[in-house]
Structure formats: C-alpha cells, structure tokens
C-alpha cells in the first residue's frame, strides 16, 4: 500500500522525467500504430469488399491471439534485433493483425441484401464501398484500431528491452527508480493506453456520418 501511495509523490517529483519518457513512449507506439492503420485498413477493407482472403485475415489474427504479446515482442525482437527501429517494427507486427481482421470483417459482414440492392440500383463498386460498406463498417474498423492501440501502447513498455526508450525504461529499472517509480510509470502507461483508446472513440464520433451515429444510438438503446 505504501508503495502505491508513494507512486504519486514520485510522479510530482519526477514529472519532467515521466514527460520525457512519455514522449518517447508515444513515438515508439504511435508510429507503428499509424503505419499499421495505413496498411491494414485499406487492405482489410478491400479484401472484405471482394469477400476474399478470409483465411489470411483470420489466421493472421489467430496467430496474434494465440501468442501473448509479451512473448510475441520478445520473439520479434529476437528476430529483428535491437534498436528503436526494430522495436517499432515489432510493434507494427503486433498492431497489424487486429486492424486487418476487424477491417476485413467490418466490410465482409455488411448485409449482402444491402450490397445487392445497391448494385442492383446501379451503384458502381466504388460507390457501394463508400456509400454502404464503409459507413456501415466504420464502427468495427475503429474497434480494430482501438484494440491495436491499447496493445501497442502497453506493449511498448517491453520494447524498452530493445533499447527504444519510453516508460519501460522506468518500469524495468527498479534499481534506479524504486518500487514507487515502477508503479508510477506503470500507472502512467495504463492511463496513456486509455487516453489513446478514447482518442479513437472521439475520432469515431467526429468522423461518423449522421446515419452511422443514429445506428449506434439505436444499438445502445436496444
């Protein structure tokens, strides 16, 4: 209990240190996350649109799920080696599967009657995608990104082993910072993960067309 309470004075006393480490932490987690979004969302959406590659999208995710992220990071660092860039590559590989598979499912699972009606009315494939599949799939696409975001931000702690900096430097260095420091930084990571998660919730709210918001409210009310 004492150490837990002691974590808060540590935060005030070492605020500058924590801020610096937070900055590093965000860089090493958000860059791979954004990269995974940029590659994973279009790929997943496209595969979902043509209803192909389910095997790819699903098996990649299952591998990701079966391995604990800690082990995965350790393995990946073992494979790609030490260094900030390598840590980011490992985090990218961690973030990619949920983003890809959620994006795939989001579009693939849109009611076939709706897309058939859309095509039957003369919408071009791209119009079916932008007017029907993407809006209806948007909440699920964002869910995948949120899952990946929490995973990346929390796992970036371990990437410290690869020498990338970040809050892991504090958490994994009890000798220098004491138990108070470890707990303070761990709490900090948890809050950071929640904040990043909430940023995407907010993004969904802002980016959603009115009709998608309506559907979400209706789903909550039901």
């Amino acid at each position: 209990m004492d150490v837990l309470v002691g974590a808060f004075p540590f935060m005030t006393a070492n605020f500058a240190l924590l801020l610096e480490k937070t900055g590093e932490h965000l860089v090493i987690s958000l860059i791979p996350l954004l990269a995974a979004i940029v590659v994973g969302v279009p790929l997943g959406v496209w595969l979902g649109h043509i209803h192909k590659g389910e095997f790819l999208a699903v098996s990649i995710t299952n591998i990701g799920r079966a391995l604990p992220s800690l082990a995965l990071i350790a393995i990946l660092i073992g494979i790609v080696g030490i260094g900030m860039l390598n840590a980011m590559i490992a985090l990218f590989l961690l973030a990619f599967p949920p983003i890809l598979s959620y994006a795939f499912q989001a579009v693939d699972s849109v009611d076939a009657d709706l897309t058939k009606a859309a095509r039957g009315m003369g919408l071009a494939p791209m119009q079916v995608l932008t007017k029907v599949e993407l809006p209806l799939g948007l909440p699920m696409i964002i869910s995948g990104i949120r899952t990946a975001a929490v995973l990346t931000v929390s796992s970036a702690t371990i990437a410290t082993i690869a020498g990338s900096g970040g809050l892991g430097d504090v958490i994994l260095n009890q000798v220098a910072y004491g138990m108070e420091g470890v707990i303070a930084a761990a709490l900090w990571v948890a809050v950071l993960a929640i904040l990043v998660d909430q940023v995407f919730v907010l993004l969904l709210k802002i980016a959603s067309p009115a009709g998608v918001k309506h559907l979400q409210r209706a789903a909550v009310a039901a």
């Binding site: 009657d113 709706l114 058939k116 009606a117 859309a118 095509r119 039957g120 009315m121 003369g122 919408l123 071009a124 007017k131 029907v132 809006p135 209806l136 067309p209 009709g211 998608v212 309506h214 559907l215």
Partner: peptide, 28 residues
Amino acid sequence: IELRRTIGYAIQQSGLFPHYTVAENIAT
C-alpha cells in the same frame, strides 16, 4: 451499371440503407 440505372429494383425487407434517412434512401 448503365443498364441498372434504367431499371427500378425493389426487394424483400426493402433493402433500405439503415444509415440513410428516408429522403437519402429515395435520392440514392
């Protein structure tokens, strides 16, 4: 696509887009 735009198409369960208002659906 040209062909379909000259043909009205209605299906069971209406096939209306749930995220479009009535006006937006009709205006598709």
